[in-house]
Nucleic acid binder design. Structure first.
Lengths: 157, 157
DNA sequence: AAATTTATGTCAGCCATATTGACGTATCTT
DNA sequence: AAGATACGTCAATATGGCTGACATAAATTT
C-alpha cells in the first residue's frame, strides 16, 4: 500500500486549491466558478457541452455558476458561426484578471515545490501526474492537454 | 504560468479520488466518510480533536459522518486512559476491510503511474508532493507524515 | 472545594454544490 | 416535415460544508 503517496496527494491538493479558495471567497465565488473560468480562459470559444464533459457535472449545476459569471461580466457568450445553437464562451478582461491572479498563486506554489528538484525532475513530475489520469475515453479538452503536452494558443502567457 | 501542471493536478486528483468514489457509492458513503476512516485507520487511537485539525472541518460536519461510521460499525470509540474525556477512535475489522479496499484501488493507480518512471524518480515525486504542502503550523498528524516520511505503526501492511 | 478550562456531543438553521427528470426552444440534419 | 442536437430552465432532493449556542463530563487551576 502506498499510504505515503495517498496522503501526500491529499494534503498537497488541499493546500494547492486552498490558495485559490482564499481569494475566491472575497469575490463570493467558489471552486466551481474557478474551474469554469479557468477552462474558458484556457480554451477560448469553448462550448457549453465541452465544459460539461471536462468538469463532469450536470447542465443544471453548471447553469447557476455560469450565469453568475456571465451576469457579473467575467465571461461572455457568442453565438457560434457555423452552428448558431452553440454559445461559445470567452473570458472578458475582468475574467482574465481573476484567473491570472489565481493561477499566479498556484504557479508560485508549484515553482516553490519544484525549486528543490533537479531540472529533469520536473519532467518526472509531469510524467507521473499525466500517468495518474484515466486515458480511456478522454474528452476533447483532456485529449488536447494529454496529447500536445497541454499546448494551446494561450501558452505563451 | 504553470498551466500544464495546474491542469494535470486537477485531472490527476479527479481520477485519483474517483476510484474510491465509485466504491463508496455502493456503501452509501461519500468522500467525507473515506477521509475519516482513512485517518482513523492510519493513526489508531486518534482523538476527535486531532481529526478536526487534519480534516479542517467543524465539529458539526464531522459529527454527522462520524456518527454514521460508528452506527454502522466501521469505527469504535474507547474512552482515553489518561484523560477520560477523550474518545479515542479505532477502525473495526469491517472498517479496515473497506479502507484497505479503497487504498488498494488508489495504490494500483499510483503503481501504474510510477511504473513508467525510473526508481529514483519515485523519490522526486514524493519530494514534489511534500513541498507542495504548507509547512507552517502543521497539525500533529501532518507533522508525523511530513516528519518521519509518514511512518506509523501501520506501515508494514 | 470551587471555579475554570477542555473534550466532546448536539440542536437549529443556513449555504454551496451537486444530483435526476422533465420540458421548452431554437437550430441543424436528414 | 421529422428528428436530433445544443442549450436553458423548472422543481425537488442530497451531501457536506458552515455558524452560533448550549450541555455534560472530566481535568486543571485557583
Amino acid at each position: 500500500m502506498r499510504w505515503d503517496i495517498i496522503e501526500l496527494l491529499f494534503f498537497a491538493y488541499r493546500d494547492f486549491v486552498g490558495d485559490a479558495d482564499n481569494v475566491l471567497e472575497a469575490f463570493g465565488f467558489g471552486r466551481a466558478h474557478h474551474r469554469v473560468l479557468h477552462f474558458v480562459h484556457r480554451f477560448p470559444g469553448l462550448k457549453v457541452a465541452d465544459l460539461l464533459d471536462v468538469l463532469r457535472i450536470t447542465k443544471q449545476s453548471l447553469g447557476r455558476v455560469l450565469k453568475q459569471l456571465l451576469d457579473e461580466g467575467y465571461i461572455v457568450q457568442r453565438t457560434g458561426n457555423n452552428d448558431r445553437r452553440q454559445r461559445l464562451l470567452y473570458a472578458t478582461a475582468k475574467g482574465e484578471a481573476l484567473v491570472g491572479r489565481l493561477a499566479g498563486l498556484q504557479t508560485d506554489r508549484i515553482n516553490r515545490a519544484l525549486s528543490g528538484i533537479a531540472p529533469d525532475g520536473v519532467e518526472t513530475v509531469r510524467q507521473f501526474l499525466r500517468a495518474m489520469i484515466d486515458h480511456d475515453d478522454p474528452d476533447k479538452v483532456l485529449a488536447t492537454i494529454l496529447g500536445s503536452g497541454g499546448a494551446t494558443a494561450k501558452d505563451k502567457s
